[in-house]
Design a protein around this nucleic acid. Structure first.
Lengths: 110, 110
DNA sequence: TATCTTTATCGTAATATTGCAATATTAAAA
DNA sequence: TTTTAATATTGCAATATTACGATAAAGATA
């Protein structure tokens, strides 16, 4: 089929999965890496940083934006992109719960 | 095309993306949630916990196993699955770096 | 205004993912 | 040995993703 049966899962599970999926491509990880490295908004040179054609980069940026992981504002004839910290913090909270449970995992037989 | 150009990205970026991708489906998040909830290995009732057919669940389990997020051992005529803590810890380390950089992000214009 | 620069969108091809019915596999139980 | 139970694999259809050339859109610049 190809379409996930999202209606059968909790909102939290779906939300978590969407964030993970948005980061589930090396180009999008690279974009986030870059935005973190420069530690500021980027108005213009993301395309040059990636080994992909401009339409492809634009598409990846769109997906990150849809997931709420980055923000983009029009800035003259360029677009200014940066990390959306609030979504990352929410993501971090999700993951803290998960990792917290892992710490106390016991009785493994595998 | 449909195939990612993984060769152009760093090993770390590709590794991170694969883990994210493996968790980028609500059914797989639900499987991890369940394994964490029961806090032990599960030999048998994962299929009943999910609103999906048995072959579909089996496929999701395979993907989680390929990504190293869960371990599975043959246990009689059942399979015993549990969280692979070492992979999650590696994942957590990756993410700690990312979230650490987010904390000090400044000069945002968006 | 005409041109340049930058980013987005459209269209399309190649490939991947999701889901399940049917079937296979494997070991326990009868 | 036959049956039962649990999980995996195969095969397929529907849909999604990835990538990019061509083109559009929109502001800057000459």
């Amino acid at each position: 089929m190809g379409a996930s049966k999202t209606q059968h899962f909790t909102d939290k599970q779906n939300e978590m999965a969407l964030l993970m999926k948005a980061l589930g491509h090396p180009a999008r990880i690279a974009i986030i890496d870059y935005l973190l490295k420069v530690n500021t908004c980027i108005c213009g040179d993301i395309v040059n940083e990636l080994p992909l054609a401009q339409p492809t980069v634009s598409q990846h940026l769109k997906e990150l934006k849809n997931a709420g992981l980055i923000k983009g504002n029009i800035e003259g004839n360029a677009i200014c992109y940066c990390i959306d910290e609030s979504t990352f913090l929410k993501f971090q909270n999700f993951l803290s719960e998960v990792f917290g449970k892992i710490q106390v995992q016991k009785n493994n037989c595998c």
